[in-house]
Design a protein around this nucleic acid. Structure first.
Lengths: 130, 130, 130, 130
DNA sequence: GTGGTCTAGACCACG
DNA sequence: GTGGTCTAGACCACC
């Protein structure tokens, strides 16, 4: 479910955080669904429980999840968050496209590149369905 | 020329590095053009010379610039680097588009968003020309 | 383990780097083995920790080691690197042999000299074993 | 006659020095032969005369050449120097062979590699003669 | 004046 | 305790 790369320069707690955010915004983890317990996840991915705890804490302060004492951590239902996350991604794409333009790549080439990506992803999804 | 944000979680030397990479790939700084001297830049942006030195060293090890003792640092002419940089940007865009698709945004919406960006940038350029 | 010569024209951080590269390619330091901590090594060989840090950073960028924040620096398992290192040494030998030839030393003499070295080294190893 | 590489991290005056040493020990420049004048060489290889001067000075202090005021710089006839230079090269070869042994390369492989070099060089010389 | 190295000392993030 | 970054200040080699 969660993949950690020790070689990745990003800190482990951030990687865990990022992975969960992705799962939540992609609705793989649905609102009110329970996250694995800190200890459980820690033992599965062989990480210090303190580190997992830190990730969960961060998810909570950023409103991705809520915590119920004695019960566990659960996915929040927060539409605003989804919107801001989407905007965030779009901003990143925008920034990168601006870079490409600055390197003198023309609109045509950029669009054909984007179309290639979209086709690639769709094909991939079809393939998995079949 | 170079802007540093102290609040940015990225380290200063990395910010300086990134800024120069952008200037170099966008050919604002042309091959064999001289970069500001370590001390000069350091005093301009109020940063310790050692930190600038670190950025320049990184630019050098990554082949963006070459350094001549007693003379200064100069932009390298490295086409391969431009290609790999472009690929890098395109990979990032791809990743982000995949995220959007996972959040169930459809191709139509994504494309209209991209077109909006392209128009925006073109308009901006026209505006500056006029 | 590591020996530094202050009189050596090579910079200290390069000497430290070279020493570790030798230990790693000779498999004295095995893959995933931990290097001494920055501060520890610094205090042992009486060098500023920043200098050691610089050596370790260089080892990392050249893929000899990987660094884990809060844990330490560890030897990488990189076969390609061994091959390129070997080729590098062979190139140096080749260069020097060419120099000898240019000074009119004949093949016979060169070979007898090489054989002497090999015998010497083997004898040394035997001696240490016995 | 002399080739300088600006990208080479070695300082220019050292490169000039090294090149002349090679020419002298290989007897391409014979004893009492005149070296190009400082100004002449400087203008040919597009280097600051001060830098050439420094190289010549170093060649002189190391007894490779002698200088006659108002006449120029001339190659010394110094057999001892040749011997020590040869020994120096052989030491370097020895060091590198020891490294190969430490990386568990066996004598057989090393010798076959040396033979390949010798053959390669001889063939090259024959080729140029023909 | 230019880059490069080194020291001393400090602070932060990570596990 | 571990690596990583930054500052301040100094010295050297090069051109």
């Amino acid at each position: 479910m969660i993949r950690i790369d020790v070689n990745n320069p990003k800190s482990i707690y951030e990687q865990v955080y990022d992975e969960f955010v992705k799962l939540i915004v992609a609705k793989v983890l649905k609102p009110d669904e329970k996250l694995p317990s800190v200890r459980e996840l820690a033992s599965i991915i062989r990480i210090n429980p303190n580190t997992i705890q830190k990730s969960y804490k961060l998810l909570e302060t950023n409103n991705y999840i809520y915590s119920v004492k004695g019960k566990g951590n659960f996915v929040n239902n927060n539409e605003e968050l989804l919107v801001s996350y989407t905007n965030n991604i779009m901003d990143k794409i925008k920034e990168n496209i601006i870079l490409l333009k600055k390197m003198d790549m023309d609109n045509e080439k950029i669009l054909s590149f984007i179309n290639a990506i979209l086709k690639g992803v769709d094909a991939n999804v079809e393939g998995k369905r079949a």
